Computed example of a mutant assay.
Amino acid sequence: MLHAARGRSTARIARERGLHLDTVRRWRGRFAQAGLPGLKGRRRCGRPASFAPLQATEVKALACRLPAETECRSPVGRVRNWPARPLPVRS
């Protein structure tokens, strides 16, 4: 929005910031319609997150480990021993 306030075009903002043109248009439209409150994050449609943030972080950390850092050498063993602690049961 600061670039727009300085008089830059939507196309120039998109190009300089590495954004899609439609994204810049959407945000400029929200700001024009509702001001700063229009830029607040909105609820997203779709299925809610399945994992708690801590669980997602643990899974990502495990996926980023090098094979030598894992406890098991067999891919089957890794799957069998993962996760180290049981995940909570969702109802």
Rank of each mutant, 00 (worst) to 15 (best):
M1G: 04
L2Q: 05
H3G: 07
A4V: 04
A5L: 07
R6F: 04
R6P: 00
G7R: 09
G7V: 05
G7E: 01
G7D: 05
R8A: 03
S9L: 05
A11F: 02
I13Y: 03
A14L: 00
A14N: 03
A14E: 00
R15C: 03
E16L: 10
E16M: 05
R17Q: 02
G18V: 02
L19D: 00
L19F: 01
H20A: 14
D22M: 06
D22V: 07
T23E: 08
R25H: 01
R25S: 07
R25M: 04
R26C: 06
W27Y: 11
R28N: 04
R28H: 03
G29I: 04
G29E: 06
G29S: 08
R30K: 03
R30T: 00
F31H: 08
F31P: 01
F31E: 03
F31W: 03
Q33N: 05
Q33W: 01
A34C: 01
A34N: 02
G35S: 05
G35E: 08
G35R: 07
G35V: 03
L36F: 05
L36V: 08
P37T: 00
P37W: 00
P37A: 01
G38F: 01
G38I: 02
G38V: 00
L39A: 02
G41M: 09
G41N: 14
R42N: 03
R42I: 00
R43I: 01
R43N: 06
R43W: 06
R44V: 02
R44T: 02
C45P: 02
G46W: 04
R47S: 07
R47M: 06
R47W: 06
A49M: 11
A49Q: 12
A49V: 07
A49S: 07
S50F: 08
S50D: 10
S50K: 13
F51T: 15
A52V: 11
P53S: 10
P53T: 11
L54E: 14
Q55W: 09
A56V: 06
E58L: 13
E58N: 10
K60A: 14
K60M: 10
K60E: 15
A61K: 04
A61Y: 01
A61H: 04
L62V: 15
A63Y: 11
C64N: 14
C64E: 15
C64K: 07
C64R: 10
R65N: 11
R65T: 15
P67Q: 10
P67F: 08
P67E: 09
P67G: 06
A68S: 08
C72N: 11
C72H: 14
R73H: 07
R73V: 03
R73F: 05
R73N: 12
P75H: 13
P75S: 10
V76C: 11
V76G: 09
V76I: 11
V76Y: 13
V76Q: 15
G77H: 06
G77D: 03
V79P: 01
R80P: 00
R80L: 12
R80S: 06
R80C: 10
N81Y: 10
N81E: 15
N81D: 15
W82Y: 12
W82E: 15
P83T: 09
P83G: 11
P83C: 12
A84K: 12
A84E: 14
R85K: 13
R85E: 15
P86V: 13
P86E: 12
P86L: 15
L87I: 09
V89G: 13
V89D: 13
R90A: 15
S91F: 13
S91G: 13
S91T: 12
S91L: 13
